[in-house]
Amino acid sequence: MANTPQARKRIRRNQARTLINRNRVSRIRTLIRKVELALTAGDKDTAATALSAMQPELARGVAKGVVHKNTAARKYSRLTKALNALG
């Protein structure tokens, strides 16, 4: 258990940041899911719109440290490749 005022403050701050980070990751996953659903449905326009909405959110996740840089690059690359394969 935290005994110092600073340790108590860190616990409070960590709980607040955890909520923020959890929401951010959830939003990123939702946007990725929208792209994947549009791709499986074969709807290129919707997939392109969803991909352009997902990319800045994914980049923001990298900047905030909730998503690894290479993970974001891999996801964006694979989804873009799948979108281009729709023709």
Rank of each mutant, 00 (worst) to 15 (best):
R29V: 04
N21S: 05
V67K: 05
T80I: 06
V67M: 11
R33L: 04
N70L: 15
A72N: 06
A47F: 01
K34R: 10
K9S: 02
L37P: 08
T4A: 08
K75Y: 03
R78T: 02
L37D: 09
Q6H: 14
N14D: 14
N14Q: 15
R12T: 06
A82D: 11
G42Q: 02
T80K: 13
A63S: 12
V35R: 10
T30E: 07
T40S: 14
A48D: 04
G65I: 01
L79A: 11
T46W: 03
G87P: 07
A16H: 10
V62A: 09
A48N: 04
N70A: 14
A73K: 09
Q15G: 01
R24M: 11
S77T: 13
S26I: 01
A85K: 08
I28T: 04
L31F: 05
R10G: 04
A38W: 04
V35M: 01
R17L: 12
K44E: 11
Q15K: 09
A16N: 06
R74K: 12
V66Q: 02
V25C: 03
K64T: 00
R12K: 11
T40W: 06
T40D: 13
A38R: 06
A50I: 00
R8K: 15
A48P: 04
K44V: 14
V66R: 06
R78C: 03
I28Y: 06
R13N: 15
K69E: 12
S77G: 15
N3P: 05
A59L: 12
I11W: 07
Q6Y: 14
N3G: 12
Q55V: 12
V25M: 03
A50L: 03
A63W: 09
N70T: 13
R13A: 14
I28N: 00
Q55L: 08
M1E: 10
R12N: 03
G61V: 00
A59N: 11
K44T: 13
R8L: 15
A82M: 05
A47G: 05
I11G: 00
M54K: 02
N23G: 13
A41N: 08
S26N: 07
R12V: 02
I20C: 08
G87S: 11
T80G: 12
L19W: 09
V25S: 02
I28V: 10
A63P: 01
L19C: 08
S77R: 13
L79Q: 05
R22L: 08
